[in-house]
Design a binder for these strands. Sequence first.
RNA 1: CGGGGCGUAGCGUAGUCCGGUUAGCGCACCUCGUUUGGGACGAGGGGGUCGCAGGUUCAAAUCCUGCCGCCCCGACCA
Length: 486
Amino acid sequence: MAKITKQSENFSKWYTDVILDADLADYGPVKGTMVVKPYGFSLWTHIRDSLNEMIEESGHENAYFPLFIPKSFLEKEAKHVEGFAKECAVVTHSKLISEDGSLTVDPDSKLEEEIIVRPTSETIIWHMFKKWITSYRDLPLKVNQWANVVRWEMRTRLFLRTSEFLWQEGHTAHATKEEAMEETLQIVEIYRTLFEEYLAIPTMVGRKSNLERFAGADETFSIETMMRDKKALQAGTSHYLGTNFGNAFNVKFQSKDNKEHPVYATSWGVSTRMVGALIMVHGDDKGLKIPPKIAPIQVVIIPINPKDEKSKEFSSFVTNLEKKLSNLNIRTHVDQLDESPGFKFNKWELKGVPLRIEIGLKELENLEVTLCRRDNSEKSQVKIDNINDISLILDNIQKGLFNDAKTFMDDNTCTVDSFSDFTKTLSNDNRFIKAYWDGTDETELKIKEKTKATIRCILEDNKNSSKKCVFSGETAKHLVVFAKAY
RNA sequence: CGGGGCGUAGCGUAGUCCGGUUAGCGCACCUCGUUUGGGACGAGGGGGUCGCAGGUUCAAAUCCUGCCGCCCCGACCA
């Protein structure tokens, strides 16, 4: 475990160092693939379980759809084709020939219809929805799946953009536009709760512009978050798909009065990218800071073992402490490895454990423990009799992490109303910039060209005719947030 | 796909220009001992087809040819 690069020196290097050294993940042998190691997977599992509970509570059911999709399915929705054509893994053959220990593709095994590895599952799901939806009684239909998807990316980074990633994708079908839109927004709120209350990440939420919208959606809502380098990361999306997929797959339903109607759709997802967000929102030069609610280990105990005759008494002191904490439903780990205490302090700080307990002879004599918080490095003592206080401290850390991140985002968000202020603001540092926009693709592209900042989302529509676009000076259609993005 | 760089132990590297000991060093790893309140120390030890294939030569990590792979920078995306 080497020392990690400082954030201020090289932020991307810091990011990679932390992931590798904290044992979250490792590179896979195929370019762009990632192995999620047990510590990283445990983190993902806690995030997943928190979200899954909210998804199920709001009336969605989990299901599983196949990894393989007939190529023809992807052709059915015009914009969807365009959006995903350039990043699909394609299966063309089913056999290899083994010869002298080497393998070649058997040309005779060429498939009649080539198969796509899903980049997302709208097409196969709507193919199935056609079989399942005939009457108004079949609606709404609300399914979710936890799955892997593949998008053949050119530039990849651990957790942020890998060729294969894990996610959840929800797909719903509704009788009316209003109901589908309501669903889309309900999911946005669930995601916001997940980010703010579990990941302790403040969000900026809004609609996507034409250029940034999901391929096949009428409207995309996104959850935007600010990383420690003040760049934006799109951390979740919820799409109102209108009748695009219903029509493409010829899905209709009969109402009570026996008439045919189109079916309205939504889809929405968050991925392992959230782990990337978590790292870059809370991390510091010592490593990760994981919010208690989703931390694989909430409290790590580091015994400073005495060598003398007190060692037996000491080890039962440790065992009792561990028992007390697990009775409080606190995920606890005792580090008994033969490493120096200083080494362990650094190791578990790197791994982002919210609270560390140090115990040695001093604590044994005083019947107390020494605590050290990962969020603010404060040390304190708690009597064994008051050990329940640790739950409160964990809550406090959870809130503290959110507040720090919120303050950071607010401090680095500004409003400008002239393009010279816009470029000046971005010239020496990254920022979130709130500004008015005329609503045209042209303006958005020009701003991107000149500043590399893109419209992250539309915060609100403009009703005040005196507000002008920050770039073109035309009457503004929307208030939006600009930023350089991952 | 264009521009730049690199392949030597798990990782990081020296040696390559100018061919010539047993390919060296740091970290990590293993064993034993001493240690333990902010990244411990000593002694010993294991691990290498020098990216691959061919060529030149008495002799190749080093020179020549071909191939392969990777990383960084520019056009897509959660």
